[in-house]
């Protein structure tokens, strides 16, 4: 091997590390430092230790509100949808040979995922319109219910956000589970056929256990993404000024972080929010890992 051949790979991967050091590692360490200061646009106003963290966890009313909103959205917007995605993937995979148009379904299911959050939100804002939106039209005329003021009522603000998140990610999760299903050896099902197992028993005893690693992956992605939701509530509920709409029902933790940093210009407190949120995501991922490990046994 020539000397050039030995050095070349290091040079080829070096741009990643240069960019990572400058634009990721350095700012991450710097944000730890900032979080210990009272720090605004004009610069640091003094070292205050853990006060930013202490205030957020004890007296800040918005932080807890934002956290409970985020966890609610995580459950109803990001986690429950796996109960739809897995059966949909099984349907898509079913009748392996008989089902025509699988590629059409895959493309259609995937489309919401590649669409910009802003476009999605602007379209849904029209679907949610109280007087002229499709959602209320169906709700009132098909189900005989009262028209709902989706974007004003504190409870339905959250539902609206959850509907958008479900719409955007169910298809993505379905496609991930479909890839997982296609990797399950067919022989497992044939053995179950000989034992006379029905379709539900087969999915319960073969499909789900085989899918556990994929479920872990998909749920981890949902946790990481779901805990950082910002674009949708920001655009749907009128930007920084409205702080998540009526009674801050749409104020997520990432939204509060952005508000604190870029609207209120309180960089120290904002960095402390970022680290608390990171810590919470980390704990949730560890719990997810523990549950997965227990289920695998």
């Amino acid at each position: 091997m020539t000397k050039q051949e030995k050095i070349a790979p290091y040079i080829f991967v070096s741009p990643f590390f240069i960019l990572f050091l400058i634009f990721a590692l350095y700012p991450i360490l710097y944000s730890v430092y900032i979080s210990f200061f009272k720090w605004t646009v004009s610069g640091p106003q003094g070292f205050i230790g853990l006060t930013n963290y202490k205030n957020l966890l004890t007296i800040d009313p918005f932080f807890f509100k934002s956290l409970s909103n985020t966890v609610w959205l995580l459950i109803f917007g990001s986690l429950l949808q796996h109960l739809f995605a897995i059966p949909l993937a099984i349907l898509l995979n079913n009748g392996r040979d008989a089902l025509k148009g699988r590629d059409f379904f895959k493309t259609t299911f995937f489309l919401p995922y590649i669409t910009s959050t802003v476009s999605v939100t602007l379209i849904f804002a029209q679907l949610f319109d109280m007087n002229y939106g499709w959602l209320n039209y169906i709700w009132v005329n098909l189900f005989n219910q009262e028209a709902v003021n989706w974007l004003q009522n504190p409870d339905t603000i959250k539902s609206s956000l959850a509907i958008m998140l479900n719409w955007r990610f169910i298809g993505w999760n379905t496609i991930i589970y479909l890839a997982g299903l296609q990797a399950i050896p067919h022989s497992l099902y044939e053995a179950a056929d000989i034992d006379g197992a029905g379709p539900i028993a087969k999915h319960w005893f073969i499909t789900l256990p085989q899918l556990i690693p994929i479920i872990f992956f998909a749920v981890t992605m949902s946790i990481i993404g779901g805990m950082q939701v910002f674009d949708e509530p920001f655009v749907l509920l009128g930007g920084y000024e409205q702080m998540g709409g009526n009674m801050n029902s749409g104020l997520t933790s990432a939204f509060y972080l952005m508000f604190t940093g870029f609207k209120a210009s309180r960089f120290g407190k904002g960095s402390a929010i970022a680290w608390l949120l990171f810590f919470i995501i980390f704990i949730m991922t560890v719990i997810n890992r523990k549950i997965t490990k227990a289920l695998e046994k």
């Binding site: 634009f23 710097y30 950082q228 972080l257 870029f262 960089f267 970022a274 680290w275 990171f278």
Partner: peptide, 26 residues
């Protein structure tokens, strides 16, 4: 090569907003 590759992959798990405030100042 192996550890370098693993490191590169691991960076994908860093939440983007973690560095957003210092990134702005930079």
């Amino acid at each position: 090569k192996k550890p370098i590759m693993l490191f590169v992959l691991a960076t994908m798990a860093i939440p983007p907003f973690l560095n957003i405030i210092p990134f702005f100042k930079m």
